[in-house]
């Protein structure tokens, strides 16, 4: 166990998108990652490459990262064509190099969608997701004066359903994966989380309308039910929440 694999290292060829600033032209650059063990996380592998770059006096590859434990939702890289790299229920920061082999070539790109302008290299601007939440992803409960938490019992299945939707980490992989650059999974998850709870029902109709509107105004595409979003989602958010969003909207239309 201990130490049996410690000396086995890999060398990998990375083909990475580099782009200087929002409007700067982008291009692929090739780098070599050396001395990578199977225990390196994907981001730690990039750390190694970056340390080398800095020592050569070059600018390191810029990428978003913070918690490195799969919960903050900030890490965002498309690895060989799949956001977060395609390991089920795994964010880039939780992806480990044992999923790769010595000598592999790895393409690393930023999220690509009109609503997510590239800021630099692999870093994109996802503030559009915040804009969607600001349009109605809340209950208008003000601080203080809330009734006792147990005043309204919520059936366990509803609470579970709500929690299933609430697990979304707002990473935007669904948008990056969607052939249409649609944010329906993200939006659907929030609408569904609140719509099923008594606290959220009150504003359900207005919420669905407002959030869909914001989504459109932000430049996201339309859903044509490819379900690629669910497959790429690191939290496995189900497309049933998109159906729920559609249902809530129809309800809002019918009045």
């Amino acid at each position: 166990m201990s130490g049996q694999n410690e000396h086995k290292t890999m060398t990998l060829k990375l083909i990475v998108w580099r782009q200087n600033g929002k409007n700067g032209p982008g291009r692929f650059e090739t780098y070599t990652a050396r001395e990578i063990t199977e225990h390196h996380s994907f981001l730690e592998m990039l750390d190694v490459v970056n340390e080398d770059l800095i020592k050569e006096g070059k600018e390191p590859i810029i990428f978003d990262h913070d918690c490195r434990e799969g919960i903050c939702g900030v890490c965002s890289q498309v690895i060989n064509g799949v956001p977060h790299g395609g390991q089920e229920r795994t964010t880039v920061c939780q992806l480990h190099m044992r999923k790769f082999k010595d000598g592999d070539t790895i393409y690393i790109e930023p999220w690509r969608a009109r609503a997510f302008p590239i800021l630099k290299d692999l870093m994109v601007d996802r503030s559009a997701l915040d804009t969607i939440i600001q349009a109605g992803g809340y209950t208008s409960a003000h601080t203080g004066g809330a009734p006792d938490a147990n005043a309204i019992p919520i059936p366990k299945p509803d609470a579970e359903y709500s929690m299933d939707a609430a697990e979304c980490i707002g990473c935007g992989a669904c948008v990056a994966a969607c052939p249409n650059g649609a944010a329906m999974l993200f939006t659907g998850a929030k609408v569904a989380q609140l719509a099923v709870l008594p606290q959220g029902k009150v504003e359900a109709k207005e919420r669905a309308r407002a959030m869909i509107k914001a989504m459109q105004e932000c430049g996201f595409g339309n859903c044509t039910n490819h379900y690629e979003c669910q497959a790429a989602c690191p939290k496995g958010i189900h497309v049933k929440f998109i159906a729920r969003l559609n249902r809530e909207y129809i309800r809002a239309l019918i009045g």
Binding site: I15, F28, V78, N80, G81, V82, G86, Y107, E109, R112, A113, R114, A115, A177, C178, P179, N180, G181, A182, G219, F220, G221, N222, H226, Y227, E228, Q230, A231, A232
Partner: peptide, 14 residues
């Protein structure tokens, strides 16, 4: 809405 295609085209479900 989806201007950029990825260099590698791999789809999981579509």
């Amino acid at each position: 809405a989806n201007p950029g295609k990825y260099a590698v085209n791999r789809k999981l479900k579509a």
